[in-house]
Computed example of a mutant assay.
Amino acid sequence: MLIKIDNVTGHEVISFVNEHLHSMTLKSPPESIHALDAERLRGPEMTFWSAWEGNELAGCGALKELDSRHGEIKSMRTSASHLRKGVAKQILQHILEKARERGYERVSLETGSMASFKPARKLYENFGFQYCEPFADYVEDPNSVFMTKKL
């Protein structure tokens, strides 16, 4: 699998991000959706990676710099045709490696509290993420859980 920095301008990647946003509307109420659109994923504080198996987009993930010691994982998604093949694990390992290289002391994330997000929460738990209070601009929300990992 090739994981590469992506400028979020290619048609396939933009469609994938839009699909991610749409799937969030099916799982979460609007006020609890924190997924980012393609334009926001191109922000200066963001690094976005796409993962490819040959010519197929397998998944994506992003790292947002909150400050010089703290990053936030965003936009983790695996394509439906690549589920349960270790794509998310490889993307998460890559993001954590980059966070360490940047000198971050911790990485945090927000994900859904509903049953449909259980596989994501399990992945993060397996990587040593612990549940925590809301961070950055997040507030308590029954539809969200917050997790963090010290690096």
Rank of each mutant, 00 (worst) to 15 (best):
K89A: 12
H70T: 15
R100N: 03
L26D: 03
R106T: 05
L92W: 04
F117Q: 00
E133F: 10
K27Q: 12
E56W: 04
S75N: 02
A99W: 00
D37F: 09
R102Y: 11
G59I: 04
Q90M: 14
Q130M: 10
E110K: 01
E101K: 13
V87D: 14
W52F: 02
Y131A: 12
K98D: 09
K118I: 07
E56M: 05
E65F: 07
R84E: 14
K27S: 14
R121S: 09
S113R: 09
A38W: 03
E72G: 12
M147L: 06
W49K: 05
S108L: 04
A38M: 05
K98G: 05
R40L: 13
M114L: 08
F146T: 05
D137W: 15
Q90T: 13
R42Q: 11
A35H: 00
L109E: 05
A115M: 11
P134L: 15
S113F: 04
E72R: 06
N126M: 14
T111I: 09
S144P: 00
L57G: 06
L109I: 05
S108H: 00
E72Q: 12
Y104W: 05
R106A: 13
G86P: 00
F129P: 00
D67K: 12
G128S: 15
F127K: 04
D37W: 09
Q90V: 10
S116E: 10
L92S: 08
L41M: 07
S50Y: 01
E53C: 13
V107Y: 08
R40A: 14
E53A: 12
P29L: 09
K118C: 10
S144T: 03
K118M: 08
E31R: 15
H94R: 13
K64N: 06
V145T: 02
T78H: 01
P134H: 15
I33Y: 11
E56K: 05
K74H: 08
E53Q: 14
C60R: 01
A136Q: 15
H94N: 12
G43A: 11
H82F: 05
S108F: 00
P142N: 11
M76L: 07
M46H: 04
M114F: 08
E133Q: 15
S81K: 10
D137S: 14
G43I: 08
I33Q: 06
A58N: 06
A35C: 04
E31F: 13
L123K: 11
C132Q: 13
